[in-house]
Write a protein that binds this DNA or RNA. Structure first.
Length: 731
DNA sequence: AGCACGCCGACT
DNA sequence: GTCGGCGTGCTC
């Protein structure tokens, strides 16, 4: 009689908001491997989980355990041991449920149990001996299709043919008559790689420093706009590829402009896989697989690309490392930049954080000697633009524009050059008020004013996207005279059209914001119009500050920098400073440029420092303020957010957590609960608790206790809560 | 998070 | 008499 063997058990991370794993019986003869995806019964549902570890003894009675339904990864685990370790670390660091973290690391196609059907692009060619005459005279489209294929000297893809106006039906019919056949994908010889550019001294020493790194090394590549940061990391990548390694390049969400992609692709033809938000799940999955199989050498992607499996990864680049889009702002609030650094440490390879305006976090790390700073101070062509403050106090303003600024705009246009006006407020006007009784259009779901969108004839809330028609008279007093508060980009655009219509008939006003670029391809069309180089005024929000170069812009006007200087969020000044410098950097990359900053507080020390001494000095000043106040990056910080149907429900939940923290006396500060600055948003009330500590370990202990307490508390009013470690927003 | 179970108000 | 509201508890 064979001895009855105790069943093999595994710990599985299941995508549910619980900070633990669940044990299952293992159904197969083959040994379980961490990182394997499995289909498991969970309550009365079936979920895709990830095997974390085989386990010796279960947390509950073995006979109560359910069995894994199916092992989804047959050959090798989807998540490599290195990625499992990274996920485990990150779940711990961000105090987020491991199951949700690991699921987040998987490409969407692998989050469900369906075997991902990689849609293979079919290629077609005309069969040998096929002739148009074999088709009926009336089958015009089939004849044309066959003719097209016969004329082509290489097989054509179904996609290409459909774009040319042929249908699946026509293809099928031709195939049935054996006039055409499937072909393998033509492998076009990759174009010759573009030669590397000549490096200037600063760039050369930066490349040498990166290439000379032994094992884990952190670099802060600080280079003014136009100083050739990209060339530095392209050559660092080239050196890695020569050694048979792979490179991972992270870029901000809007930063993946066609220019960026084509620059990397033309240097390394056929070796780049890109992953960005505009991509379909299928295409993303294909590129993800290419990377995992080692079929590409470079992955270029946004935030989530930090989790792409690259078996020979030897270098990580984080471009525009200060960019807020690296921080996921919902669910698992991880920072791809910080995870990139951890990943490089695990792999023992160099990581380069690059920016013209490094974050205070990274500058602090550089000051501590954790990061080696590589500076690029020279522009490849032309000088850095000159910044001037325009004191707008007590001056007549036309739609928020000072006459001095208007004069400069007129002069610039007259010289045949382009102007960029930066106004970080979209829509026509940020509020609608009755001139007679003072009634203001409020959002019904948020503590916010509705923004007027004139052309679309509606009011919209920029916080919950609620839309109402633009009223024609005041609902309270029926008067129909309206007051529009300060201009948004839409109003500015209309004003400028009107203002310059008489003097400069040929001037174009091009608005670039979320509203004018919401349609696919519209951004590219607008950018193309700018690139025609005719005199024009570009009006836009922060979208303008990212990724695009406008060579013919010689005047930049910055219209509403004041708001950021007086925000209650201490991080707003940092963001405003970065934005200002980034926008200024759009000016005169080839021709000398000027930047006029219109302000009502020309004596503001931060603004003065920035304008007179530059970003580095501004950042140092900000850092000393943070140090004095004991704020990040000098003190690690986390935020616990809660929202519920009523404010008191959110506050009670957070108070209970605070009580637990105070009772246990585990150190660190706990501030709040504070109602969020905009307490009501999308119909729910929001509050938060701020945790601050002197050391990381202390914050970690606070969070551990906060999470165990939070998970056990009763949740009334549909209460939802979340943890945000190293938050970038105050609430 | 989902989902079931369970206990109280206005409806065919 | 039930349908359905959401408070409560559980998920190996």
């Amino acid at each position: 009689m064979p001895q009855l063997q105790s069943p093999l058990l595994v710990s599985v991370a299941v995508p549910c908001p619980l900070r633990r794993t669940f044990d299952y019986r293992w159904p197969s003869d083959r040994h379980p491997e961490p990182g394997q995806r499995v289909l498991v019964p969970f309550g009365n549902r079936r979920l895709v989980g990830v095997v974390v570890a085989p386990c010796a003894s279960a947390k509950v009675d073995t006979d109560k355990l359910k069995s894994v339904i199916e092992v989804l990864d047959s050959d090798r685990p989807t998540l490599s041991p290195a990625l499992m370790e990274l996920g485990r670390w990150a779940a711990n660091y961000y105090h987020h449920p491991i199951g949700e973290c690991l699921q987040n690391m998987l490409p969407v196609r692998l989050r469900s149990a369906k075997p991902p059907q990689t849609q293979v692009t079919l290629y077609w060619q005309a069969s040998t001996g096929a002739s148009v005459d074999q088709l009926s005279k009336r089958a015009h489209r089939q004849r044309e299709l066959l003719a097209t294929l016969m004329a082509a000297n290489a097989p054509l893809s179904g996609d290409t043919l459909r774009e040319a106006g042929f249908t699946r039906q026509q293809l099928r019919q031709l195939a049935e008559q054996n006039l055409i056949e499937q072909a393998s994908a033509p492998s076009p010889a990759p174009p010759p790689p573009q030669a590397p550019l000549a490096l200037r001294d600063e760039q050369r020493s930066a490349v040498e420093a990166i290439n000379g790194a032994q094992g884990f090394a952190r670099f802060l590549l600080e280079g003014v706009t136009g100083s050739g940061k990209t060339e530095v990391y392209l050559q660092a990548i080239a050196a890695q590829l020569e050694q048979g390694k792979q490179a991972l390049v992270l870029i901000p969400e809007i930063g993946l402009t066609p220019q960026t992609l084509s620059r990397v692709e033309s240097r390394f033809p056929g070796r780049v896989a890109s992953l960005h938000s505009g991509m379909g799940d299928s295409e993303r999955y294909q590129n993800w697989q290419r990377a995992q199989n080692g079929d590409c050498d470079i992955v270029l992607g946004t935030r989530s690309a930090v989790f792409v499996d690259l078996p020979r990864l030897g270098l990580i680049i984080v471009d525009e490392e200060h960019d807020a889009s690296y921080k996921q702002q919902e669910g698992w609030r991880y920072s791809a930049r910080d995870i990139a650094v951890k990943r490089a440490a695990d792999l023992d390879c160099p990581v380069v954080l690059a920016s013209a305006t490094p974050s205070l976090d990274s500058l602090h790390n550089a000051n501590l000697g954790r990061y080696q700073t590589l500076q690029l101070t020279r522009r490849a062509a032309g000088d850095s633009p000159h910044l001037t403050l325009v004191d707008a106090r007590q001056r007549p303003l036309k739609e928020g524009l000072d006459e001095v600024l208007l004069k400069h705009i007129a002069d610039t246009l007259a010289a045949g050059e382009q102007v960029l006006l930066f106004l970080n407020r979209r829509g026509y006007a940020p509020q609608l008020q009755c001139h007679s009784c003072g009634w203001v259009a409020d959002c019904h779901a948020c503590d916010a004013r509705m923004t007027v969108h004139f052309r679309q004839r509606h009011l919209r809330c920029h916080h919950c996207d609620a839309i109402r028609p633009l009223p024609d008279h005041c609902p309270d007093c029926h008067n129909h005279q309206w007051l529009f508060d300060g201009p948004g980009t839409e109003k500015l655009e209309l004003f400028l059209r009107h203002h310059f219509a008489d003097t400069l008939a040929s001037t174009e006003v091009i608005r670039i914001d979320r509203d004018s670029t919401s349609q696919k391809g519209s951004m590219a069309r607008l950018v193309d119009r700018v690139h025609e180089g005719k005199p024009a005024i570009l009006v836009g929000t922060q979208m303008l500050a990212k990724g695009h170069h406008f060579p013919d812009v010689t005047l930049v006007g910055i219209l509403d920098i004041d708001a950021g200087l007086f925000s209650p969020d201490y991080r707003a000044a940092e963001r405003s400073g970065q934005l200002l410098v980034q926008v200024a950097g759009r000016a005169g990359r080839e021709r000398p440029g000027r930047v006029l900053i219109q302000t009502h507080c020309p004596e503001h020390p931060a603004l003065l420092t920035l304008v007179q001494q530059g970003y580095r000095a501004f950042a140092s000043q900000q850092l000393s303020e943070r140090k004095l106040l004991g704020l990040p990056p000098y003190a690690p910080c986390a935020l616990i957010r809660a929202d519920a149907a009523r404010l008191d429900q959110a506050e009670a939940f957070l108070s209970a957590i605070k009580t637990a923290l105070v009772d246990q006396g585990i150190g660190g500060q706990c501030i709040g609960p504070l109602p969020a600055p905009m307490t009501r948003r999308a119909g729910r009330y929001r509050a938060s608790l701020i945790l601050q500590a002197t050391r990381r370990g202390e914050l970690h202990r606070q969070l551990t206790l906060a999470c165990t307490t939070g998970e056990q508390l009763k949740k009334t009013g549909g209460l939802r809560w979340s943890v945000d470690v190293d938050p970038i927003e105050a609430s």
